[in-house]
Design a protein around this nucleic acid. Structure first.
Length: 279
DNA sequence: GTAGCATGGTAAG
DNA sequence: TTACCCTGCTACG
């Protein structure tokens, strides 16, 4: 479930469990074994995320860059009575002392697209290719606006472009466009600044909710059924609801392929944009 | 049981 | 544009 909120949450979890401690670092699966041996026994300064990227900072200045890709996961377990034998293909395992007595904390990384040693310079170069991350305090939405307002590409594609905004995935994209009634195929150039400001502010709030809850929640309470309100199931306005009735207008949710990814939207709630000249 | 798909990105062609 | 990485869930038989 890795969109930006997942990585941000993960950085906090890793920080909480391991920061300031010397760690046992290993690669049971073997693909990261050489680097793991190099880091074994060293102190983890902390963890940080930017968009969908995550870094572990080991003293004095080695970084482990992690990208979960589509199905990677990094599970953190705190204060376990014992550390179990690794299950499946564990690329990276961190083990540190727990908070109490003989307890231990551990974290297992599986299925990641990237797990590699980086220098601070390599990290800087990577970050230079990323747009603002709505979850970071210093994020500047104008940098994204600069790109969007000058691009004829569809807004749905721009939102998923990590050099425009870092951290948006297919779920936040579809849901954000729906919440703002924006036709996903509209060119970036046709958006007005006020619209983008509203979308950005909403995104910041949605993603902070995602960090807090560990789940992407985008549907307003009044648009949930009674059953959904009670069981708190994962629901969306349009994401993965192809053919189902729109929660607001009842028309069938549509889907199509855009640059190799599924795009979902409601034709009636997100009407086809017409330029002023054509009206 | 198992085929097919998925909240992603890169590199090859 | 396509293959791939190689996990976990769901739908289907």
């Amino acid at each position: 479930m890795p969109e930006g909120h997942t990585l941000h949450r993960l950085a906090s979890a890793l920080d909480g469990a391991f920061a300031g401690r010397a760690l046992r670092v290993s690669s049971p699966q073997g693909r990261f074994a050489e680097s793991a041996a190099l880091l074994d026994g060293r102190v983890l300064e902390g963890a940080e995320s930017w968009g969908k990227h995550l870094w572990l900072r080991f003293e004095p200045e080695d970084l482990v860059h992690v990208h979960l890709g589509l199905y990677g996961r990094f599970d953190v377990t705190r204060d376990a009575a014992s550390v179990p034998a690794p299950v499946g293909q564990v690329r990276l395992r961190l083990v540190g002392s727990g908070s109490g007595g003989d307890r231990a904390s551990y974290a297992d990384l599986r299925g990641a697209t990237a797990c590699e040693l980086q220098t601070p310079e390599q990290r800087t170069a990577l970050v230079a290719r990323l747009g603002p991350d709505p979850l970071r305090e210093d994020a500047d939405p104008d940098l994204a606006w600069h790109r969007i307002s000058r691009s004829r590409a569809p807004i749905a594609g721009l939102l998923m472009d990590q050099s425009v905004v870092a951290g948006i995935g297919n779920v936040y994209r579809a849901e954000l466009l729906y919440r703002h009634r924006v036709d996903p195929l509209r060119a970036g150039t046709t958006l007005r600044r006020g619209r983008w400001t509203a979308m950005w502010e909403d995104l910041v709030e949605l993603m902070h909710d995602g960090v807090r809850d560990g789940v992407i929640r985008t549907v307003r309470p009044e648009h949930l059924t009674d059953a959904e309100r009670l069981d708190g199931a994962r629901v969306s306005y349009v994401y993965r609801r192809t053919g189902e009735p729109c929660r607001v207008c009842g028309s069938r949710v549509r889907a199509r392929d855009l640059q190799g990814r599924n795009l979902y939207w409601c034709v009636r709630c997100q009407p086809r944009f017409r330029s002023r000249a054509l009206q």
